[in-house]
Amino acid sequence: MTIKNQILNRPQEKPIVWDAFFQPNGKRKPLVVFCHGYKGFKDWGAWNLVAEHFSKQNLFFVKFNFSHNGGTIENPIDFPDLEAFAQNNYSKELNDLDEILNHLISEEFEHKNEIDLSNITLIGHSRGGGISIIKTHEDNRITKLITWASICDFEKRTATTGELKQWRKDGVKYVLNGRTKQQMPHNFQFYEDFKANEQRLHIETAVKQIDVPVLIIHAKDDPSVTFDEAEALHSWNTKNSLIEIENSNHVFDANHPWENNKLPIALKTVVEKSIDFIKD
């Protein structure tokens, strides 16, 4: 069963659009919540096909758009709302993740009898990996964590010394989206939010204190988030497991749009290793 583009409305907050993939058989299943990365969205590339693979293994797989990722309820794909994108920050993403979790495990959730509340896994890709790490550290409801091509440090991706002065002066900076050719705005509040929450957002500290099983998956030749970031995550808590994916890239050879009905070999391996880890 697939339920697409569900809307989680929130008082005084932007809504969250989400999907669920599961087999409605009345059996309680591990809950898997997937967090997309920077300039990402829940329907990017092969993510729907990924979700189907998890569902076929009797897992309750949920993916969602962060509320300020640039999508809208009417168009959750790509970035029609750059004003919202400009207002995004790490704190908002952590709050979004908390609220989607609260909704899924609430008594009011329509499919609550399909979910095993004692078995909750977060999967985060790229920046979503960093968000998932912080959330796992903070939330004892999370029982397993999987990162795909995760970053290991928010600070170096927030501002360089050279750009900070100009960013503060202008109030906004722009990053080119190579695929859509949009100039993606970041208001200076992004930096201010990071500095205000710097200790909370320190990934190394979080990783060292996580005591649930963690699986780190990373392509050896990732050009966007280099493999040494995976090695750093692993070195900070050697109880974690690290899997190298050979001859692949940051999105494990998928792209957008993905028009094949099969996963690329690298991403299929990532999915299979992840499912094995959840079921172990």
Results as ranks from 00 to 15, higher is better:
2 T>D: 12
3 I>Y: 13
4 K>N: 08
6 Q>F: 02
13 E>F: 10
16 I>G: 09
17 V>K: 01
18 W>A: 06
19 D>A: 10
21 F>Y: 15
22 F>N: 03
22 F>K: 07
23 Q>M: 11
23 Q>F: 12
25 N>H: 11
26 G>P: 07
27 K>H: 13
32 V>C: 12
42 K>E: 00
43 D>P: 01
44 W>P: 04
46 A>C: 13
50 V>S: 06
55 S>P: 06
63 K>Y: 00
73 I>C: 02
75 N>L: 10
76 P>L: 05
78 D>A: 11
80 P>M: 01
81 D>L: 07
91 S>A: 04
92 K>S: 11
95 N>T: 11
95 N>H: 12
97 L>A: 05
98 D>P: 00
110 E>P: 00
112 K>Q: 10
114 E>C: 01
115 I>M: 09
120 I>C: 07
126 S>L: 10
138 E>T: 01
148 W>V: 00
151 I>R: 04
157 R>Y: 15
160 T>L: 09
161 T>E: 15
164 L>S: 03
165 K>Y: 10
169 K>H: 11
182 Q>N: 11
183 Q>M: 15
185 P>D: 13
189 Q>E: 10
189 Q>T: 07
191 Y>S: 08
191 Y>R: 07
195 K>W: 08
200 R>V: 02
202 H>Y: 13
202 H>S: 10
204 E>A: 14
211 D>H: 09
217 I>W: 06
225 V>E: 11
230 A>E: 02
231 E>W: 06
238 T>Y: 01
239 K>P: 00
243 I>H: 07
245 I>S: 05
247 N>A: 15
256 H>W: 04
258 W>S: 01
261 N>Y: 08
261 N>L: 05
278 I>N: 03
